[in-house]
Design a protein around this nucleic acid. Structure first.
Lengths: 340, 340
DNA sequence: CTGAAAGCGCTTACAG
DNA sequence: CTGAAAGCGCTTACAG
């Protein structure tokens, strides 16, 4: 036998036609038990594997989902949020469970998502993952919908969005963290992270924070909010800037763990004790949160649940079934950075 | 126009044959400038994209590389070494540069790599990435070679290995770190990490450590080595166990940054100051190393260079050209955990 | 339950 | 420089 075995080889050896081999291998119930056994036996002996290109070409789908990963601003390879690595691992497994492969691509916002994947039959659908300026890619989402591209995104779930989204209940997460800080006696809680329509996930966390303050009859002060995106460096810089403002705060609610880790470093460099002088909380529960010094109070998002929902929703839309946006429940994880 | 445009549609509109369209789109020099322009224009208007399944089927390759990612022992999704995320990002970009897609899979060692990918024409070649028990998958590598599978792996580069490997010069990295610790006056430097044939990357780092000690006329003491694999928890546990041994040490050389971060936490919980009481160094230079408290001295491995070498070597073997194992140079990054 | 025929959308000789 | 023909290895009607 030279080269790879084909279904014709098996057909010849089994004394049946090639389509029968194809049917037997796909488990069609119209093949007799005896024939199937013979075919499977030969297939195993020849180490036969269905040629994906041929079967995909014929059946016009490809058993592959594409993960488009983007961050904005575009950063070095090494500065990707570890939270997304958890998502990536969970997504890979969720795809495997459904018998799909995952094609991965780190994209710039300028690239043409649709054309690159679905048009060229590389992927049946697209999973969008990343932090970016929402207002910038909103138009792109609409374009994907218009073209009939199958996609699902991880991010803030809000009414009127193009396509379907799966995301954490960021509002509730923000509220839970803030209530926890309030319960520890903190009165001047600063929010570190972008809080605008451009970053709706952060904005939702901010709105949760704001509502918790309101319930405690506290005002949401602009002096106690400072922009930051999800990197340690940005968190470090933001905390320094906030300290320089002399706004006076006794707690930081950071919109992500990376921000929190950077911010903690800035506080410690200035000789502030955590949590005695300043309590700090994050969001995401990345692995390092537990090993930060002090260990970081944060909000856990279950990536296994998230990935399963993402993949199932996407497959549903591909198969023309109903699918709707959904949120997953956040859970507060209390550690030493807020007093344990 | 219903459905997707095909090369036949373009041929019809351009008044040429379908093969000419195919040639024009692939930039064949045998197509006249005028014809090509007309075809490209129409293709753009129709938003045409070559069907990958068809072209791959015909040309018998697929423009996709598979990344098989594994860790051993098998851990939770969230505990993947951030260093591999950097590698993943760099690999994706390196593939894109070469016009290849990257299929990703988190594998257990028990799965059949070859059959899953190359046999089914899903990928032209395989990139192996991960920490695992080398002795366990050595046989698998040999099997891949025997089957003629195209693959390349990231890991320790050693003589007599099956297939080709790209890796850091771990020996030199270990030596550099240890010499640095010695230059800071440390005499009893412990090594935290597995040091056996099962984990050749760590073992090479250990051997570099050992040689540096020998050059300083110091002995390599078994009491100052303790096993750990690449997680913070493992590093934490190992450091605790080492302290309980009362072996007396003034520095830790941890075989990875994750180990170092876990170990630092253990030391700090026991009231030890870093670097005053114990200097600590890691390996990998993950993003968090810089934001650890204190910031972590470590060995940087350039993932961009590594990914480029991995992809280029793999493509060379696929094209039947020469390719050899190579190491990349490590670079020592000195931070506060060893006294700055 | 099985086979003969067609065709998915390309690329690759081959001929002119 | 271009076209007619063949075929990559499957799956999908259709017929029996």
């Amino acid at each position: 036998m030279k080269g790879k075995a084909t279904s014709h080889d098996i057909a010849y050896l089994a004394g049946v036609s090639q389509p029968t081999v194809s049917r037997a291998l796909r488990g069609s119930p119209t093949v007799s038990e005896e024939t199937r056994k013979r075919i499977l036996e030969i297939a195993r002996e020849l180490n036969y594997k269905v040629d994906k290109n041929a079967s995909n070409l014929r059946s016009q789908h490809c058993g592959t989902l594409a993960l488009l990963f983007f961050e904005d601003p575009t950063l070095d390879d090494s500065f990707i949020n570890p939270f997304f690595l958890s998502m990536l691992g969970s997504l890979t497994r969720a795809c495997a469970v459904q018998g799909y492969d995952l094609l991965i691509s780190f994209q710039q916002l300028s690239d043409n998502w649709h054309t690159d994947y679905q048009d060229s039959n590389k992927a049946d659908g697209i999973i969008l993952l990343g932090y970016g300026d929402y207002l910038e890619y909103f138009a792109r989402l609409e374009q994907l919908v218009r073209k009939g591209t199958h996609f699902v995104r991880w991010g803030a779930v809000m009414p009127g969005q193009p396509g379907i989204s799966i995301g954490c209940d960021n509002f509730r997460g923000g509220k839970d963290v803030t209530e926890h800080l309030l319960s520890r006696g903190r009165k001047r809680i600063a929010f570190v992270g972008h809080a605008s329509d451009h970053y709706p996930e952060f904005f939702e966390r901010y709105r949760g924070y704001s509502q918790a303050l309101a319930h405690a009859s506290l005002q949401t002060l602009p002096a106690l909010q400072i922009d930051a995106f999800t990197t340690e460096q940005s968190g470090y810089d933001a905390a320094c800037a906030l300290l320089d403002r002399n706004a006076g705060f006794d707690a930081l609610f950071c919109a992500s763990d990376l921000i929190a880790i950077g911010a903690m470093r800035a506080l410690q460099e200035r000789g502030l004790r955590i949590p005695e002088d300043i309590a700090v909380a994050g969001f995401d529960d990345i692995p390092t949160a537990r090993f930060a010094n002090p260990s970081l109070t944060t909000v856990h998002q279950d990536t296994k649940v998230a990935a399963t929902l993402l993949v199932e929703s996407l497959l549903n839309t591909i198969q023309g079934e109903e699918a709707a946006s959904q949120t997953i429940a956040p859970s507060l994880v209390i550690r030493q950075s807020t007093g344990g």
